[in-house]
Design a protein around this nucleic acid. Structure first.
Lengths: 216, 216
DNA sequence: ATGCTAACCGACCAATCGGTCAGTCATTTC
DNA sequence: GAAATGACTGACCGATTGGTCGGTTAGCAT
């Protein structure tokens, strides 16, 4: 029973096939037989490498999670303005999500699951990691005075993550609506949503006082 | 074979049971037998009322979609500022999502599905309806001069929808992080994310010119 | 009260599910 | 060259799946 590192070509092809199918159809819709077919091996061989279907799925998720957001953390430590960091992080993140559609889809699907299980927990950990990263970025900007101090960094982080996810999930629908089309769709959206957030969090001088706005 | 309107108490209890189970576990994880158990009827009776499991699921989705965002459209026509409309729409929407957790979960799950099918299409229609509604709100504000004219209404709409969805899906995780806790969590988030967006889209006087910001 | 229809049920079906098992084959170790 | 090990397979298992079938019951119109 191999664990965590596929050695033979067979074991690797199983993992790849499983990743593709799980990402596309979800855990329940994928049969072990179909994974075996796609991987070009016998079904029993899958149980030779992985104790059960669930173990295989966990392995797929573990790998997907490990790959996610590795480079992003480095960005935070760089020596540039928070505005630029936010721009770069957003563009990088959306690009990465789309380039790695399979694992993104795996994580987002599991994020929406209602009942608690190990896999959902992994997905939420990934979200949390990303989430706290961007909270930190906002707070960093607030401390340095680059951002206004009176907005909620957590809410901003939720909005930021949510915007990314929504764009990822609804790219096609968006194209139907003639929005964000073509090759630069991702970059275009990243820039626009950033601008939107930033112009809301720059130190205020126009601010009609954030307590009056609700009456108008 | 009943269609679209359950008449007997049995048919209704089937629909309710199916809604609950589908929302919690997803289509594939739910067996017709378990629906029958929960509804307190015989399995065969389900096939008497609904031609197949898929038809039943479609019916569940159709009903969920019809209920969604009925009242929201009226809000747009009201006679108040766009800022207030946005505030009220956001609070109302998030509250509705949480109050109707089952159907929200149904739609969000299907939104993430990769392969095209009728149900996914319904979910995307719901998203689109909500999406275009809020685009319209932003554009309305831009036309009237209440909002700045140089931001992208579509991007703002994606950010708005995405923020809502992210909050819904990650409420629990958020509570673990000591964020947005307690009864007013939803209202608190709605207000904060609105403020965030609004202060980014108010007519600018502080604006360092939206072309310079990226250098800083 | 008779006839018709829809609601409802128990028993059953073929297909598929995840998983097991006995055994083959190739490679390595001594 | 014998023994051992891990990769791999085909045949098979019990359980469960969505769905069917023949038949019973209840309500309503005539």
């Amino acid at each position: 029973m191999t664990k965590s590192k596929p050695t033979t070509t067979g074991a690797l092809s199983i993992l790849e096939a499983a990743t593709e199918l799980f990402a596309r159809d979800g855990y329940e819709c994928v049969s072990v037989a179909s994974i075996a077919d796609l991987a070009g091996v016998c079904k029993a061989n899958i149980f030779h490498h992985y104790a059960s279907k669930e173990v295989l799925y966990l392995e797929v998720m573990r790998k997907a999670s490990a790959e996610h957001a590795e480079l992003a953390e480095a960005l935070l430590k760089e020596d540039c303005s928070c505005v630029e960091k936010l721009h770069r992080l957003t563009e990088y993140d959306i690009k990465t999500m789309i380039d790695n559609e399979l694992r993104t889809r795996l994580i987002l699907r599991e994020l929406g699951e209602a009942c608690e299980n190990n896999v959902r927990r992994i997905a939420h950990q990934v979200f949390r990691r990303n989430f706290q990263l961007v909270i930190e970025l906002f707070e960093q900007g607030q401390r340095s005075g680059e951002f206004r101090a009176d907005f909620d960094a957590s809410a901003a982080a939720v909005a930021w993550c949510g915007s990314k996810n929504a764009f990822f999930l609804c790219r096609e629908t968006m194209q139907d609506l003639e929005l964000f089309k073509g090759e630069d769709a991702a970059r275009g959206f990243a820039e626009k949503v950033c601008t939107l957030l930033i112009e809301g969090i720059l130190p205020a001088s126009n601010v009609i006082s954030s307590t009056q706005k609700k009456i108008s």
